[in-house]
């Protein structure tokens, strides 16, 4: 009787832990985000597995749509410290048709997450331009999380002549 009770408790606990962990890691926050929120003061090498995990955590099991994101980057950048970047989300910005969060990732950086932009409903067009750093020539990826659950992804390769010092 005692053994049976213990076993049931064990399975229940395992189930709860599994549910919690699956929710905690797939709520759209990238894995390294928590890590980055500290003032990081040590050297770290770029890790392709880590970037794949971040992308997976952002996208999850949602459906990916093409031609939602327009991305403008130069084909070749002379200086890796200053790579100009503009993106535009093709949406009306009415009621539910707006991007909640837009992630910008440089895939070969030690910290691939470059920026997260947040937009609000009926507050202008979703177009942003800024400058980012890149260590080597690699892909730049923009992931748009729409408010109604859709996801748009665009990816472009940038050739960097002189990488940002690291």
């Amino acid at each position: 009787m005692k053994k049976f009770k213990r076993n049931t408790l064990k399975t229940l606990l395992a189930f709860i832990v599994a549910v919690l962990s699956s929710k905690g890691f797939s709520n759209g926050n990238p894995y390294r985000d928590r890590f980055q929120s500290y003032r990081q003061t040590f050297r770290i090498e770029p890790n392709p597995e880590e970037t794949q995990r971040i992308i997976k955590n952002i996208i999850g099991k949602k459906k990916i749509l093409d031609n939602l994101v327009d991305l403008q980057v130069p084909d070749t950048a002379e200086d890796g410290n200053v790579v100009p970047l503009t993106f535009r989300i093709n949406c009306t910005m009415q009621k539910d048709d707006y991007p909640k969060k837009v992630h910008v990732l440089a895939l070969e950086n030690p910290f691939p997450e470059v920026a997260i932009y947040e937009f609000f409903s009926e507050k202008g067009t979703a177009e942003v331009s800024f400058r980012c750093r890149m260590r080597t020539s690699s892909f730049i990826m923009v992931i748009a999380e729409m408010n109604d659950g859709r996801i748009g992804v665009n990816k472009k390769y940038v050739d960097v002549m002189l990488g940002a010092c690291s």
Binding site: Q36, Q40, N81, V82, V83, A106, N109, F111, P112, E113, V114, A115, I116, Y117, E118, F119, F120, E122, K123, G124, T125, A126, E127, V128, S129, F130, R131, C132, R133, M134
Partner: peptide
């Protein structure tokens, strides 16, 4: 903020260049 209401928000990590420039649109 536009008349005290948050219109746009940017969270930056270490990948943004020095002397950061940012352009966006409001209605």
């Amino acid at each position: 903020r536009y008349n005290g209401e948050i219109v746009f928000k940017a969270n930056w990590f270490s990948g943004v260049s020095a002397n950061p420039y940012l352009a966006f649109f409001i209605k």
